[in-house]
Design a protein around this nucleic acid. Structure first.
Length: 489
DNA sequence: TACCGAATTCCGCAGTTACA
DNA sequence: TGTAACTGCGGAATTCGGTA
């Protein structure tokens, strides 16, 4: 008998998890009942493909329309794992070998691709459950030109979590539905589904997208429930199906994906709603994502945890070079150990405040210690900023400026943070008439008191780089600035 | 116009997820 | 860890529309 040994699985050379997988090997030989001794395949022989890392989210995935419209119901994480696996396939190698590869995928790469999954408390457990589901679940495919005959297939006959990786092989019988598709297929870009949070939204997006070429489709309630594998006993009332499945899905599809689906009219039998005619069109603004300069920037923003809708909005409203500059500043800030708790908020602040330029100013400050010339340049830059700030303030009435600037920034804070700010200002102020006035003004959520407005506005302006100030920062600010705002006694 | 059945609206519950 | 938001679901009350 061979000796028992531990084999470290060959790594892809990319980011590794905290716990590299070690597969405990059974003895290398096994005695078959008929007496023959066979050699078991090694791990390297078993694993025929290594996921190459985080997929290109702009890459296109093709799926046969038969599979898109098949009857199945997977959890959202199982859908994500499936999409990840398919995105990693090498079509030629897979076709030549005649079977899907047994792929080793780092869980960290799956989590990195799907931000919603990455924020989960127990990513490993969730992916393990998704793997179990892909092993157990079935897809029911119509065959023989849909003459009522159905074929049941399992998704992944080999699927399991090993250490920090997922080992998975798709069912080879699914190859005609995923490879070498020349007609009757639906293509989608990963970027448009990674943010979908419900399997129903994902499935309906794929289904409607399969009809995009036609611009419209007509589906009955029963057809949709069958495709989504919803038990006929559920959503007996059409209204429930509409309000709980269809409407939320259409909203998510419009907000997140590249198509927009609207209900043209219901199909009725008397009063009874049988289904609907849908209008399907590509969202014009989403085409911007495909522009050569914007696409990589949007992808980069999404990798930083910024939702696609926000990323698209930034790409639409800012010049690519300027956006790239601020993104570079943001990633530099992150890699230097600064924890960015709210990436969309931080980037918005960076775009509005031109942090990258301020960083250049910071570099100038360092140089100023060495050079008189730099010191003068720094002085001029500071004066220019001051002039710009004054100009903005002068364009607005003082009260409007206070309200618009300070309230906008204050309102941008999460509710919990707003409560904390109010509390800190209330706690941190000295007792007495003015302190009471300040506390009352804050608790009322307003800035009627000009001193409170000025103090808070200046805090925000001075600390604009801090989207959500901490309690300590606020207390320190109040302590050091109190005298400047307190009324003369 | 009254009746009946389907659609719509509203409410509440439970489990999950996101966030600070 | 607590809270808010979201998702998925069922049921009751009300409204609407077809039909006799």
């Amino acid at each position: 008998m061979g000796t028992r040994r531990a084999i470290r699985v060959k790594t892809s050379g990319l980011a590794e998890d905290a716990s590299p997988p070690v597969i405990e090997r059974a003895p290398e030989t096994v005695r078959r009942p008929h007496g023959l001794v066979e050699r078991l395949p090694s791990d390297d022989e078993l694993i025929t493909a290594l996921a190459s890392g985080v997929p290109d989210i702009a890459a296109t995935i093709r799926t046969s329309n038969d599979l898109v419209r098949a009857h199945y119901n997977l959890s959202i994480n199982a859908m994500r794992v499936m999409a990840f696996y398919v995105s990693q396939l090498d079509t030629k190698t897979t076709r030549d070998s005649g079977q899907f590869p047994l792929m080793r995928i780092a869980l960290s790469h799956i989590a990195e691709t799907f931000p919603a999954l990455a924020s989960s408390k127990n990513i490993y457990k969730e992916i393990e459950l998704a793997a179990d589901e892909l092993f157990d679940a079935q897809v029911v495919l119509p065959i023989n030109n849909g003459r009522g005959e159905r074929l049941r297939l399992r998704w992944a006959p080999t699927c399991g979590k090993v250490g920090g990786h997922l080992l998975m092989r798709l069912n080879g019988d699914l190859m005609p539905y995923l490879l070498d598709l020349k007609e009757r297929y639906t293509s989608k870009q990963l970027m448009y589904v990674i943010e979908l949070r419900s399997p129903y939204h994902w499935r309906l997006y794929e289904i409607f997208r399969s009809y995009l070429f036609r611009g419209r489709c007509s589906l009955t309630v029963d057809e949709m429930k069958a495709m989504l594998d919803i038990d006929s006993g559920l959503y007996k009332k059409v209204g429930h199906f509409v309000s709980r499945i269809l409407t939320p899905a259409l909203t998510a599809i419009e907000q997140i994906t590249d198509i927009q689906v609207t209900i043209e009219r219901p199909r009725r039998d008397g009063k009874r709603i049988l289904g609907w005619d849908f209008l399907i069109r590509r969202q014009a603004q989403r085409k911007l994502i495909l522009s050569p300069k914007a696409a990589p920037l949007i992808e980069k923003m999404m990798r930083l945890g910024i939702p696609v809708k926000t990323a698209t909005s930034f790409a639409e409203n800012y010049e690519p070079d300027y956006l790239a500059q601020q993104l570079e500043f943001m990633t530099g800030k992150g890699s230097s150990g600064y924890v960015i708790e709210d990436p969309p908020g931080f980037l918005r602040a960076a775009l509005e405040g031109n942090f990258a330029a301020e960083r250049a100013e910071g570099a100038l400050l360092e140089a100023a210690k060495q050079s008189e010339v730099a010191r003068v340049a720094l002085h001029h830059a500071a004066e220019a900023r001051l002039r710009e700030a004054k100009s903005t303030a002068e364009q607005l009435a003082p009260a409007d400026f206070r309200r618009d600037k300070a309230m906008a920034m204050f309102d941008a804070l999460p509710e919990r943070k707003r409560r904390e700010v109010r509390q800190v200002f209330a706690d941190g102020l000295p007792t007495g008439a003015f302190g009471q006035q300040v506390a009352t003004a804050f608790n009322a959520g307003g800035f009627e008191n000009p001193r409170v407005a000025a103090m808070f506005r200046n805090f925000l302006v001075d600390h604009f780089a801090i989207p959500a100030p901490t309690r300590t920062e606020l207390q320190e600010y109040i302590a050091s600035h109190w005298d400047a705002y307190a009324p003369a006694s």
